[in-house]
Design a protein around this nucleic acid. Sequence first.
DNA 1: AAGACGGGGTC
DNA 2: GACCCAGTCTT
Length: 354
Amino acid sequence: MSQGILQDFNNFQFEEDLLNWYYENKRDLPWRRSHDPYKVWVSEIMLQQTKVDTVIPYFHRFMERFPTVYDLAKAEEQDVLKAWEGLGYYSRAKNLQAAVKEVVATYNGKVPDDAKELESLKGVGPYTKGAILSIAYNQPVPAVDGNVMRVFSRVLKIEDDIALAKSKKQMEKYLEELISKDDPSSYNQAIMDLGATICTPKSPACLVCPVAEHCRAFQDGVQEVLPIKSKAKKQKKLQYIALLVKNEKDEFLIEKRPNTGLLADLWQFPMIEVVSKEIDIESEFLKQYGLTVRNQQKKGDLKHVFSHLIWELEIHEVETEEKTVTAPRLRFVKKNDLKTYPFPVSHQNMMKFI
DNA sequence: AAGACGGGGTC
DNA sequence: GACCCAGTCTT
C-alpha cells in the first residue's frame, strides 16, 4: 500500500459498496448489451465530451450502417462523416475509420487487447485505451475521464486543479491501485454511472450515494466545492457573410471544407469573412470563388457557438448565371440533394432560409 | 502547458 | 452567459 493520500482509505469496503450498487442500479445502455470490442470502441469514441442521451441514436444508426470493423473499413469517408453529422468533433469519425482500417490490415480485424497496440491507434488516448481494455477485455486498467476526476476528487478530497494534465496523470496512478481486480469492467462503468447520476457536477445527491460513508469531501461538507477546475477562456468572435448562391436550374453552390482543421471535409455554403466594415460582397465573392453573382438580398442572421469560437453569420441570397463549376471542392446541388452531404449544424440551420 | 476541436443541455 | 460532458491531438 502506498503512503500518502490512499493511506487509511478503506478501498476494500469502497469497492464492495460501489459494485453492489452498480449491480443493482446499472443503466441499460445500447453498448452494454454485449462486450463486442468494436461496439465498446465506437461507443467510447462517440461518448468523448458528449452526453449519453445525445449518443444513443447515433450509436444505433452507426451500428446499423457499419455493423463490423470490415464494414467501417471499406466505407467511403463521406458516408462515415454523414453518419457523424451533428455529433461534433468530426476528427473522431475520421480517426476512428483510419484506426479501424489499421485493425483490419494489421490485426486481422481483431481489436487489440494490448495497451501498446491500442494506444498506437488514431484517436485512442489513455482514457479510451483503458475503457476498451477494461470493459471489453476485463483488464484492470483505469479509464480516467471527467466523471472519474470529479468522483475521486471528492472521495479522496483532492484539491488539485483537474484541468491540469498532471492531475489526471496522478489520478491514473491512484486508480491503478484502487481499481477492482475482480471486476474491473464493472468498476470503471460504476464510477461513470455514479458520476452521471449521483456524484453530479452541481448538487450531488450525497444522501443516496452508495459510497458517501467513504467520501472525504462529504464528511467535510465540501462536496460542492470539489473538484477544483480553472476557468476556460472565452471564445473568439468571427463574422461572416454566408451565401445562398442559386443558379437558374434552382441549384445551390456548396463547398467542401479543407481536409484538416475546423469541420474538416464537411460541406458548407460559401462564406466570406467580414474583415472590414465596408466590403463589397459581389466583388469579394468573385475574387474568392471565381463566380459572378447579382441581386444580393439579405435573408437573416445566425449565431453559432463553438467551444473555442463564435460564428456570427449574415445570410444573403444571390443569383448567378453559372450552371457548372470546375473547382473540385465546389459543387452545384439541388435543394433535395443537400441532405446527402455532411453539413455542420450551423449550415443545416442556414437551409431554413431557403 | 495551452490551444484546437462541436454541439447540446443545464442553471 | 458560464459550465459541463465516457478526450485526443497539435503546438
